[in-house]
Design a binder for these strands. Structure first.
Lengths: 249, 249
DNA sequence: CGGCTATTTGAGTCTAGTCAAAGCCTGTGG
DNA sequence: CCACAGGCTTTGACTAGACTCAAATAGCCG
């Protein structure tokens, strides 16, 4: 993995020069997340302090406890954020995709680790540099506060799931949320194409892979979902899924 | 809603006039949390837009789903923040005390409820008003971002506890954190005076009251703690408590 | 000294975890 | 094109940790 600053800087400058208006206008994440809050002019300034990077699948690009030098804005792909216990038990705290901002859960050191579960492209920002331009672009700081608030809401929702929901409710809740987050792909019915493995799912939901599997089997037998290969799951009864996932039965 | 600068200044002056240097200088939370980030002059301005309030024990002062009109800064006492499922299952997401800031977990509506577990005094801020003075006092906004980041770290830590720790580890972790948060009171040994009931503890730790009780009994039998009446718990072996609470054995 | 509530303890149950094996997909190479 | 190796997923049998229901005990307050 080549992250040395010189290379990144050269790459960034090249891209800006090559593209005139820059990489941003064509970026998948241009109109979501942090960047959506900025006008083209401001965005070009921000692009000037961004270093683009990529991570291969299954590679860790943030390690808990490391000095927190960067923020990341995901442009493409999916990553998992997690915390480990000394004996290897792991809790995935979230999945992030295009438009998502990473790095708020840190003071001087990262409080989480991040690993790509699909090839990831991101813009990296030096934390000190970014903080320095807050004065110039208060919209960025404002937006980050919004992002942090939203993360907090999502995390507390997740606490409710981990602390109080049954296995089936957890799985249903996850599918329900994912259904509303990702635009349902492929025509026939509503089919989700989940990028994560059963193991990731289990570590996110505070369960084991076997229990996740059994919960999906139960939802299948109830006619709520159909489980296909390749991480694809069809939602046959979205209304019922939502009721189960919100424990509103 | 009137938050033009003239009005704010006038109101501010009134408070200052009435109280001399004002309520802030004598406030228990003057040098912690949000207010600690401000100089006396700025603080007096902030005090001008604050409305003081009190809540009796066992009274709810924020209800999940209500329009989010205020932020709160706790000056005294302790409250629990929580989320409920439709059937009554409850997850407490945190306890807040003097110096803690409440209300970030909200967009247009509160994502949580809050109830006093001790008599509470707070300063209330109108969200719109507070946002309006961000431009004038960027330190406030900066500080709120720090607070939100810290909340996020704490919440993710809590997710790890809820998703992956055993009952005994959860209780030990809680006591360990509380030990480092609250200054150990009373001379003989290290004794915590917890303001919350077993029920609150259980709802915070994702357990039942019986399981919390049994976990405490286990820690007692191991010689780690001594459980006294009136919510007092003595820590006999802080090192061992910490090891168990971090699953580092 | 009661009455009330909070907490602890006990007995049995159940959900989810553990261990083990079978099935299924994917990708590779003959 | 098919056979096979490897990993991922599902299913099964059993166990264990936490929950439920129930009763006893201990504080708290009048």
């Amino acid at each position: 993995m080549s992250f040395d600053v010189a290379t990144l800087r050269r790459r960034s400058i090249n891209v800006l020069t090559e593209n005139g208006l820059g990489l941003c206008t064509r970026c998948e994440a241009r109109h979501i997340g942090l960047c959506d809050a900025l006008h083209d002019d401001d965005l070009h300034f921000l692009a000037g302090v961004a270093r683009q990077g990529t991570v291969e699948k299954n590679h860790v690009f943030v390690t808990e406890g490391d000095a927190a030098r960067s923020f990341f804005n995901i442009n493409h792909g999916t990553a998992k954020l997690y915390k480990d216990l000394p004996d290897g038990r792991r809790q995935i705290t979230g999945f992030v995709g295009a438009g998502d901002f990473i790095g708020l859960a840190a003071d001087t050191h990262y409080a989480f680790s991040a690993e790509a579960i699909e090839p990831v492209r991101f813009c990296r920002f030096d934390r000190v540099e970014l903080r320095a331009i807050f004065g110039r672009f208060p919209e960025i700081e404002r937006r980050l506060l919004e992002v942090a608030s939203h993360e907090l809401i999502v995390c507390q929702e997740h606490s409710l799931l981990l602390g109080r929901m049954t296995a089936i409710e957890r799985v249903a809740s996850f599918l329900d949320v994912w259904l509303h987050r990702a635009p349902p792909c492929q025509g026939s019915g509503i089919t989700l194409n989940l990028p994560m493995s059963r193991s990731d799912l289990a570590e996110y939901l505070g369960l084991t892979i076997e229990t996740v599997s059994r919960a999906l089997a139960s939802l299948r037998k109830q006619g709520v979902v159909a489980v296909a290969a390749d991480h694809r799951i069809s939602i046959l009864d979205p209304a019922r899924l939502s009721i189960i996932g919100q424990a509103a039965a």
